[in-house]
Design a protein around this nucleic acid. Structure first.
Length: 415
DNA sequence: TCTGGGGTCCTAGGACCC
DNA sequence: TCTGGGGTCCTAGGACCC
């Protein structure tokens, strides 16, 4: 936009870094013969839905969420790449670490996005937002060999919006004093935090574009949506008050769920899925050296969700104990209706103290066993070793499918 | 029109305590 | 019996994110 000199200090300077087709780009980087070709990342070899795809694939109309079958109709030469979540997490971590060299004031927003608060290091870069934006892209490229898009402005929301404007490999800078003007014609639902629900509400007041927001008082949004509502009113005017929060806080829940074959009525089968989820939760607790005492267990029937919170006697990371809770709850609440989804989550997981019950030999043995199993599964894939029932893949479709979201990303960044 | 999976935050209301 | 204050915990529901 404006590259004229001299530059002046901005009251606040916020950037959003967004990786371009992150997972697909990693596949193309690691497998050079896929570069320049349409690549679609799927959930394992047997995945049928597209998690993300390369820009070459997008040119054919292929997009996230599309069925592989549909995609192949548009693009017969589409290459299927099974997701490698551990690899993506590794690359993500290294990128985030390198960004910390630009500013420690960094908030990891997702596996492929980060906010940088540059307010306090403007002088270092001669108050030149272009220099900073290019530096961010360079740092990311140097460490990963991948391209990203960067948005830079005076507030969080505008920076986020700006990053979306030019892709791939974009750099969009919006001076804070021009933010309101830049957003004026933008649909409110294009802002991060405004979706259909709030969009519908705003439409009732004739608010469609950001500029329309001024026609209604902030109190209307405040009353209906509380503080987040007030924030949106300000966002539309390029004045998002939300700060960059670099604190890596512990996860509040850690769970797994699954959509199962519709209307499953066989109790044994449903319990098997619950066992699967319980073991996944337990394995992930162990991976992050966490334990929990309260678990949320749920299954969805035609009448909606049946849910419970139940506690184990003491903190645990043992799948069998978690499954016991599942079984108890399920046998109490289930009355033979068809089930569509199951879900198990650890609530308020805390660092494992690592000492309680250590003097009990059985517990020591159990821990050793878990360590060994986890090690093997990490190397050879989830559920290579597991409870015997889970090995029966015919009754357990997709059991091998890896969770494609890198595990505990936020936590692992510490240290 | 939209799969499926893993999360967060906020609010209101009820139960219970002093 | 009614009123009022303060606090906590839990639940349910809504909205949104990648």
């Amino acid at each position: 936009m404006d590259q004229s000199l001299p530059h002046h200090k901005w009251t606040k300077m916020i950037a959003l870094m967004d990786m371009n087709a992150f997972f697909a780009s990693i596949e193309q980087k690691d497998y050079p013969w896929w570069r320049g070709r349409p690549v679609a990342v799927t959930n394992g070899k047997i995945g049928t839905g597209i998690i993300t795809c390369s820009y070459e694939a997008r040119a054919f109309g292929v997009h996230t969420g599309m069925r592989l079958v549909e995609a192949r109709k548009l693009c017969p030469q589409l290459i299927q790449a099974p997701a490698r979540p551990y690899r993506y997490a590794e690359v993500s971590r290294s990128i985030m670490h390198s960004l910390e060299n630009i500013t420690p004031d960094l908030e990891i927003f997702s596996v492929d996005e980060a906010f940088l608060d540059l307010s306090h290091c403007q002088r270092l870069y001669h108050y030149d937002p272009w220099q900073i934006g290019k530096l961010i892209k360079q740092v990311v490229f140097d460490i990963s060999g991948l391209l990203c898009s960067v948005g830079l402005s005076g507030d969080r929301s505008t920076a986020k919006w700006a990053a979306k404007q030019m892709k791939p490999n974009g750099l969009t800078i919006i001076k804070p004093e021009l933010a309101e003007q830049a957003l004026a014609e933008v649909s409110v639902t294009d802002l991060c935090g405004v979706n259909k629900g709030i969009g519908r509400f705003l439409a009732q007041y004739g608010v469609y574009r950001c500029a329309d927001m001024k026609h209604i008082p902030i109190s209307v949004l405040g009353q209906r949506f509380g503080n987040p509502g007030k924030r949106i009113w300000l966002m539309a005017q390029g004045k998002d008050p939300e700060v960059i929060n670099g604190h890596v806080c512990e996860a509040k829940t850690l769970g797994h769920g699954k959509v199962i074959p519709p209307n499953t009525t066989k109790g044994q089968t449903i319990l098997l899925y619950l066992m699967h989820m319980a073991e996944k939760v337990a394995a992930r607790l162990r991976l992050n050296q966490l334990q929990a005492q309260v678990f949320s267990i749920a299954f969805k029937t035609i009448n909606g969700w049946q849910k419970t919170r139940s506690r184990t006697i003491s903190c645990t990371d043992d799948g069998k104990q978690i499954f016991k809770l599942c079984k108890f709850f399920f046998q109490q609440k289930w009355q033979g209706e068809g089930v569509f989804q199951v879900h198990v989550a650890a609530l308020d997981p805390r660092p494992a103290s690592g000492q309680q019950d250590f003097f009990i030999k059985d517990d020591q043995d159990r821990q050793n066993l878990h360590q060994m199993i986890d090690k093997i599964n990490h190397r050879y894939g989830e559920f290579t070793l597991c409870n015997a029932p889970l090995l029966n893949r015919s009754s357990m479709p997709n059991v091998i499918a890896p969770a494609w979201k890198p595990d505990g990303h936020r936590n692992t960044l510490e240290h």
